[in-house]
Amino acid sequence: MSLYPAFARPRDLGQAAEIMGSLSTGAMIIAGGQELMPSVNYGALMPEVYIDVGQIAALKGISEEAGAIQIGSFTVHRDVQNNDLIQSKLPLLSYAAAQIGGGMQVHNRGTIGGNIVAMHPLYDILPSLLALGAEVDVLSDVGEVRVALADLMKDARHGLGSESLLVRVHLKPMMPGAGWSYEKLKITAGGYGSANAAAIVTLDSSKITSLRVVVGAVSALPVDMSDTLSDCCGQAWSAHLAEEVEARSSAEIKEPLSDHQGDGEWRRAMAGVMARGAIEAAIKKAG
């Protein structure tokens, strides 16, 4: 807590690592500020040092290398939405980024890295990234490490804080012909999501050959339903299977959130409705 915080503006990853390594707790990395600033404004957070990572070129840019797409963590939502590479090879991600709340203003400033490290249960990006099997590069004083996003989230310190910096996201392009969908349930236009689901489906004639489904906004972290629902593979979508998917997805939510977006019982039920809806919509697009 400091009334008179200091400011650091590392020019490259090396400087960033040096600063992070030398500071005690109380330093905060700031990118777009969309997540951090509300807490700062209300005095809930009073960082001692702001580490502005906006000058680090390595955090920027979207590129394709060796069959994988890299997205710098400082990429704003709007660029994720409108980038040609992402639109053509990761349409699910581009679409999910467009569903982020807060309007154009937040799309213009909020970054994919900030959205990830917030690990906010109601935010829009994580379910799609998990469905896409994203990996991330994390920089700390021990250097840069690549980890699966799913593994990073298992770490209790997943908020990353001031000791480590999310550098970029690695994603494999979606399979040609794969169907995808991101479904988001809101009570009203201004509400945060009460439940959401990202799905990627491949079909062989009408039979499901692969299925990725991640449900968000219903528990503390997104829940990957892909294993639970793996026996959908080999089957054709039917009313019966849809009901089963809905019931099993709901049952998978052990500790539903209960907050202003809705009570736990409803959220659990909506997990199923969203999973079912996302798969259904993805199947329609597949082929």
């Binding site: 400011f7 700031i30 969309q34 951090l36 700062v40 000058q55 807060g102 203003q105 213009n108």
Partner: peptide, 17 residues
């Protein structure tokens, strides 16, 4: 900001050099 709308209350001025 640089041709794109932003909410100035959640934009840290120091980051806009």
């Amino acid at each position: 900001i640089d041709g794109r709308v932003a909410k100035s209350c959640i934009t840290l001025a120091a980051t806009l050099s």
